[in-house]
Design a protein around this nucleic acid. Structure first.
Length: 483
RNA sequence: GCCCCCUUAGCUCAGUCGGUUAGAGCGACGGACUGUUAAUCCGCAGGUCCCAGGUUCAAGUCCUGGAGGGGGCGCCA
């Protein structure tokens, strides 16, 4: 018996030879032609059934979605739509698929919203198999990018006893009986009796742990799940998402920007090189989608053009202070079109402002830096006062992408012990609970910088999808933890 | 957390001013078909009009509440 060959590989295999393939039926036409898909690539293999050699009962069971195995001879296709096809000599039904109840009849073009509700089956569609192959390529590309640059991958903890990271609301982790928890004398819950002997949560960021590692290994990155219990209901937020957090000793803000831009461009190039077929399919899907929209709302570039455009142009780098000036003098601001008008320095930028800068003013990815200290996290490095800048700023950077908004947030870190402690004090962060973190600044502190990349936001951008719930297999969001 | 929209056949959607027996395409099912490409052709079945109240002679259609879904905003990656 021949060994199984993947559909992807059979397209370049020698003809006039026998092969065994296994996969799922996408369509069965003319009682004769099976379009077989095994997920190894987007394309289906055409299998030609010989009615004389195949039992009528088997033919009856070749239904959309059925799992089948075929032994047959590969020949040059006698039809037009494909170069080769497999002449079936023996067909085995591995798993029947009842067409009366199987919800994915692909010819129906089921909506993304409907498929989201049957996420356990949506892998079987072209769109989602393409998305998850691209997601994998990006994941692999990230490890390759950092490995090639001598970064060490650090597995930061998922359960954390630190609740002072300030990145968002946390999910509590406990083995206590929530209906009858042990109490202290003052009525508060006695976490000393909990599994870890203290209150614990799911991590919101591996950054602080990455900093600890960077101050010894120099170049490190984390790539793992993070959890935010924020009640966020948008197309760009998840309660469980994957984040990449590089942290590099001796880097300043500019090195940090260079690293982030290099990484994003590397990953876009990586996907263009390795996922051409899937990207072409996703691009076509988008173009079909666009046809239903009014002219004004259609995008100027196709998906692949957009990706290449990002590669060919340097990201626009400017400070928050410069951005405020542009926004203040912008047409929508003067005409009162912004829901939140830009009045003075110090205001946080709303997504309408970010969108204006990225999509209207610069028309390319933008890196905004040196934000007011008051609206940024405690660990960001405080800038020296500068002429023309009205207030204190920090060496922060946000990378804004068209259609996505913030895809990366990062900073040069405050490495000076006294300044860091003063700032923690101002922001009411308990220094005593963070002494492990402060030890890095007590013992051999050096300048360092890092950032966080929201993995799903990158997948969104690269696939051209618009809802983040469609680029992770089983999305978690408020009110939903199915599967 | 706030604001807006949607929910009719398995899927995608029509359904006019509140008026008789609720419609289409696709899918499914039955049949034909040995070169199809979202195959095609013929035939047939398929409905808790999201749920609960209310208004009305009469509700898929109007009102109130709820559930589910979508979009925008905020929080951020």
């Amino acid at each position: 018996m021949a060994k199984r060959i993947r559909v992807k590989d059979i397209f370049s295999a020698a003809t006039s030879q026998n092969y065994k393939v296994m996969g799922w039926v996408r369509t069965f036409r003319n009682n004769q032609f099976i379009a077989l898909n095994d997920g190894s690539c987007l394309a289906n293999l055409q299998v030609v059934v010989d009615n004389d050699k195949t039992d009528a009962d088997i033919i009856r069971r070749i239904t959309t979605g059925a799992g089948i195995m075929i032994d047959g001879k590969l020949i040059e296709s006698q039809g037009k739509g494909q170069t080769v096809e497999l002449l079936a000599e023996n067909i085995t039904i591995l798993g029947d698929c009842d067409p009366e109840t199987y919800p994915i009849q692909l010819k129906n073009r089921p909506s993304l919203e409907y498929l989201r509700e049957i996420a356990h089956l949506r892998f079987r569609t072209n769109a989602f198999s393409a998305i998850f192959r691209v997601r994998h390529a990006l994941s692999y590309g990230i490890h390759k990018f950092f490995n090639d640059r001598h970064f060490v991958n650090i597995h930061s903890p998922i359960i954390t006893g630190s609740d002072a990271e300030g990145a968002g609301e946390m999910f509590q982790v406990t083995t206590l009986d929530i209906n009858n928890p042990p109490k202290n004398e003052d009525g508060s819950i006695n976490y000393k009796e909990d599994f870890f002997g203290k209150a614990t949560n799911l991590t919101v960021s591996g950054q602080l742990e990455a900093e600890l590692a960077a101050l010894a290994l120099s170049n490190v990155y984390t790539f793992g799940p993070t959890f935010r219990a924020e009640n966020s209901n948008t197309t760009r937020h998840l309660a469980e998402f994957w984040m990449i957090e590089p942290e590099v000793a001796f880097n300043d803000l500019h090195d940090n920007m260079d690293l982030a831009e290099d990484m994003l461009k590397y990953l876009i190039q990586y996907v263009l090189d390795h996922c051409a077929e899937d990207l072409a399919f996703l691009e076509q899907r988008l173009m079909d989608d666009e046809k239903t929209k009014p002219q004004a709302e259609r995008s100027e570039m196709s998906l692949i053009e957009k990706l290449k455009f990002c590669l060919e142009h340097p990201f626009e780098r400017l400070t928050y202070t410069e951005a405020i000036e542009i926004l203040k003098n912008s047409t929508p601001n003067k005409k009162g079109k912004f829901q939140y008008p830009i009045e003075k320095w110090g205001a946080d930028l709303q997504s309408e402002h970010e969108r204006y800068l990225v999509e209207k003013h610069f028309k390319k990815p933008v890196i905004l830096t040196n934000y007011p200290a008051a609206i940024k996290a405690f660990y960001m490095r405080q800038d020296d006062p500068k002429e023309g800048v009205p207030g204190p700023t920090v060496s922060a950077m946000d990378i804004l992408f068209p259609g996505i908004g913030e895809i990366i947030g990062g900073s040069q870190r405050e490495e000076r012990y006294d300044l860091l402690v003063r700032r923690m004090d101002e922001m009411h962060i308990p220094a005593e609970e963070m002494s492990w973190f402060l030890d890095t600044r007590r013992f051999g502190s050096v300048p360092h910088a890092g950032f966080g990349l929201g993995f799903e936001r990158l997948v969104l951008f690269v696939t051209g999808m618009t809802n983040i719930r469609d680029v992770i297999p089983f999305p978690r969001f408020p009110g939903n933890a199915e599967f």
